[in-house]
Design a protein around this nucleic acid. Structure first.
Length: 572
DNA sequence: GCCGTTTTCGGCCCGACTGTTTTCAGTCG
């Protein structure tokens, strides 16, 4: 039987082809086309094979005749001869050289053809032996730059979670705001778009005198070295290996600067194409019509000029938002102010740090109307999971605290184990007693697709289960998502009315944005939960909200925007 | 290789910075 390809793997294959074509020196637009198709396939939110079987692959933007034929071969035979042929021309080792910062396809081709090099280690050796500087177009400085690039490649970790990047950016921005003449300082790039992970930081400053800003920036204690510095742009590498880019422009150009560096790249490419159609040229400096400049001090000016609604940063991925903005039908995305309560948190009754009352008070401070205490159940021994007996004791404590605060509702739920054998941790009569039941997988995450999907579907179909917690089980940077068939679970949840959680813990952000979008499309109810294990953990809600927004979710799609009475009526 | 209320062929975003160059190519975002 032909091997099955996941969307992610297909996208990865197409990106490799794009790299190979670029190294071969094919016209760049071919590579761009392959990458665009790869992005769109990775973002589908449903199984590529389903579209292949039930429809036309050319429904996918960026997939035309040639690519649909290749994808058809790949999906039906599990192989792609075109790729295999390319592999003979451009060995895998050559592709691996592209990972070196400041080394692109042209340099790779040069090093490979002239020196026969097939690995990063060999490049390093050649650089140390002074062989690279002998190549045409490369000199001593390039050689040193490549060596530094290799060092960075070894040291820097993968993309870092949003929740880790956030405080780092805040600290840097606070320092930049101290510089004389600085009007505004903002994080842009994937951080502003609230992507689950961030590769580097893009910081923007509004000031008419960039020089002192650049100087201060280069000398911050976090900075290990300045890798690039010009009049409007400086790039530094932090001690932790993180790259931070800074751009400075005067206030009258700040809107176009912010728009441009927020991205995404594909969003901007489309926007600029739109500008061209209107006889305009758009860059970070503003619009140009011939020689005439049209400046944009505010970001909204850029979109207004193009006849578009202002597009929230979280949507700027070229996933249809520009078309929607042109027709005035952007969604009214859920906001922090819409959230009335948190349905998932832990206390010191299981593996949380705070008491029930401390969590309740913290929820009230955040303006919530209700909070669900949802500790782990017995099978999760490592987390001191609750037995039915301790659950009853806890109920008394929850009722006692609840009675103390008449304007606030404290509810009891729990995070129920979906056990490795597919059964639930409690029998139905125990399940029936509580306000909110969240069912989650914490074990057997490596089970094969069919088995783990059935376990979750079993929980979805149980009438006592209200919510499915962190569906994929991924931990960014540590654990890949399980093989659970997410589109299938979403379809079933739409039928049964089961709520799917958007878990806000920054290295989970699970449901992923592309599946949030799919869920919204299917009419699945969603909950944005902090899964807090401490008082401070409640604040992670903002990352869950951002993920919901990236999935085009409105308040009506999110159950914890409801008043408590409506919520309880909904989950029965 | 894709795509089309200006096109089924001829376009395909725009600029900063660096290095090895005598006017520009490569890389990056």
């Amino acid at each position: 039987m032909a091997r099955t390809w996941t969307n992610r793997e297909v996208a990865e294959l197409l990106r490799r082809i794009a790299d190979m074509l670029e190294i071969k020196g094919e016209v760049i637009y071919k590579s761009i086309a392959y990458r665009r198709a790869a992005d769109n396939i990775a973002d589908l939110g449903r199984d590529l094979r389903a579209i292949w079987r039930e429809g036309d692959l050319r429904e996918i933007p960026g997939v035309g005749q040639a690519l649909s034929k290749k994808l058809d071969e790949l999906l039906s035979t599990g192989r792609l001869r075109y790729y295999e042929k390319l592999e003979e021309e451009v060995p895998a080792g050559v592709l691996s050289l592209l990972a070196i910062p400041d080394v692109g396809p042209k340099t790779v081709k040069l090093i490979w053809e002239r020196l026969g090099i097939l690995s990063v280690a060999e490049v390093e050796r050649a650089a140390r032996e002074g062989k690279l500087r002998q190549l045409p177009g490369l000199g001593e400085k390039s050689e040193q730059r490549i060596l530094r690039g290799i060092e960075l490649l070894h040291r820097r970790s993968e993309r870092i979670p949003l929740g880790t990047a956030w405080p780092v950016a805040r600290e840097l921005l606070a320092a930049l705001r101290q510089v004389l003449g600085v009007r505004k300082a903002t994080a842009a790039g994937s951080l502003r778009r609230m992507c689950a992970t961030v590769g580097d930081l893009d910081l923007l400053v509004s000031s008419s005198s960039p020089a002192p800003v650049m100087q201060v920036f280069g000398q911050l204690p976090q900075v290990e070295r300045v890798s690039l510095s010009g009049e409007t742009k400086t790039t530094v590498i932090q001690r932790n290996g993180l790259q931070v880019d800074l751009r400075v422009l005067p206030p009258e150009r700040y809107g176009s600067l912010l728009q441009y560096f927020t991205g995404s790249k594909s969003h901007n490419v489309k926007l600029r194409g739109l500008a061209l159609e209107q006889g305009l040229s758009l860059s970070e400096y503003g619009f140009k019509r011939g020689e005439e400049e049209i400046l944009c001090p505010r970001e909204g000016d850029v979109y207004r000029m193009l006849g578009l609604q202002r597009i929230p940063p979280e949507l700027r991925e070229d996933r249809g938002e520009i078309e929607a903005a042109a027709e005035g039908r952007l969604p009214a995305l859920v906001t922090e102010g819409d959230i009335r309560g948190d349905l998932h948190c832990h206390t010191d009754w299981s593996d949380g740090a705070a008491s029930i009352e401390e969590m309740a008070l913290a929820a009230m401070e955040r303006g919530y109307e209700y909070l669900v205490i949802s500790d782990h159940t017995q099978s999760l021994g490592v987390a001191n999971g609750l037995t039915p007996e301790r659950l009853k004791e806890q109920r008394q404590e929850i009722e006692r605290v609840d009675a103390r605060y008449p304007d606030f509702r404290l509810l009891q739920g729990y995070e129920l184990e979906i056990k490795a054998d597919g059964t639930l941790d409690f029998p139905d009569d125990v399940l029936a007693e509580l306000d909110v039941v969240i069912a989650s997988v914490h074990s057997g995450l490596r089970q094969e697709r069919e088995k783990i999907t059935q376990r979750v579907l079993n929980a979805v179909r149980n009438p006592h289960v209200d919510i499915i917690g962190h569906l994929s089980g991924r931990i960014l940077g540590h654990r890949e998502p399980s093989e659970v068939d997410i589109p299938e679970v979403l379809r079933e949840a739409a039928k049964t009315g089961t709520i799917i959680e958007i878990n806000s813990i920054p290295d989970r952000l699970d449901l992923e944005d592309i599946y949030v979008r799919r869920a919204v499309g299917l009419g699945v109810r969603l909950a944005i939960n902090s899964d807090a294990h401490s008082v401070g953990g409640l604040d992670m809600m903002r990352f869950g909200i951002a993920t919901a927004r990236r999935g085009w979710a409105e308040a009506k799609d999110i159950v914890n925007t409801l008043p408590v009475g409506d919520l309880l009526a909904l989950i029965g």
